[in-house]
Design a protein around this nucleic acid. Sequence first.
DNA 1: ACAAATAAAGTTGCACGCAACTTAATTGCA
DNA 2: TGCAATTAAGTTGCGTGCAACTTTATTTGT
Lengths: 143, 143
Amino acid sequence: MSDNLLLEKQLCFRLYSLNKLMCRLYAPILKELGLTYPQYLAMLVLWQNTEGISVKDLGSQLDLDSGTLSPLLKRMEVQGLLTRVRQSTDERVVIVKLTHKGIVLQQSAEHIPGEMFAVTGLTPDKLQSLNLELDQLIVNISD
Amino acid sequence: MSDNLLLEKQLCFRLYSLNKLMCRLYAPILKELGLTYPQYLAMLVLWQNTEGISVKDLGSQLDLDSGTLSPLLKRMEVQGLLTRVRQSTDERVVIVKLTHKGIVLQQSAEHIPGEMFAVTGLTPDKLQSLNLELDQLIVNISD
DNA sequence: ACAAATAAAGTTGCACGCAACTTAATTGCA
DNA sequence: TGCAATTAAGTTGCGTGCAACTTTATTTGT
């Protein structure tokens, strides 16, 4: 009888836990901006693509399919953060583009990364190396 | 204008991505057992507590509240994996206990950790140290 | 040129996760 | 003792994630 089936031994459980902890950590700050956690991650991409980005490209950066993104973006459109317009050169494609309201929201979010970083108790070097380790894991698993 | 608001710089995004990747990695194997990913994590705890465990204690090990756990356990009860019985000495408490079917399912799960470990491309040492780093992070964040 | 294959986005249905709340039982304290 | 506070579990409502599917548009091969 191996003890491999122990919760404490499982990497997957730590990732499951940490992700939930992160959500809960961000939730109250994001609530002030009127954003959920996945919406915030989407905004991080959109703030780097103010000229607009297709749902497909947004999804590939967030690793989300249209089944998740379409309703999420629809809610953000209702909030007035972005517009969704079909591309005239290829009517299959929908371009997501931040409104003025969506763009200026970035200023209210500037303080968040620093604040969250402080809570992790990591040094910048430790954060950097952990990020690289996790990136390697992402590559290995997603091949 | 800082570049802290970059998706690629965010630890939270890596944890978000990796957790989803883990779910997708486990999903097909767990489907053979008729389990979802959170149900599998619950089974890991229950296999270590065949004498039974309260919903509260199970929740504290999984870091889940009754709002999530109650319906999840109800579904697993329907599947015949466990029973839920109110404790006679304290009628507030519900004891979750695996059925025979739930207990013997462990045998079908024995191969999973090894299989999943192989995919990570980690050495045992690397896995160990990563687990410790993540544990430290969990402690720092959840205080 | 045109039918088959492919691609992009959206819809549906289900299982979480969690905030906010309700219900029922137990504890604690004046 | 009696009643307020606390505790355990469950319910409700909403926002993801994702599988499976549909719809519409474009591309590909002959």
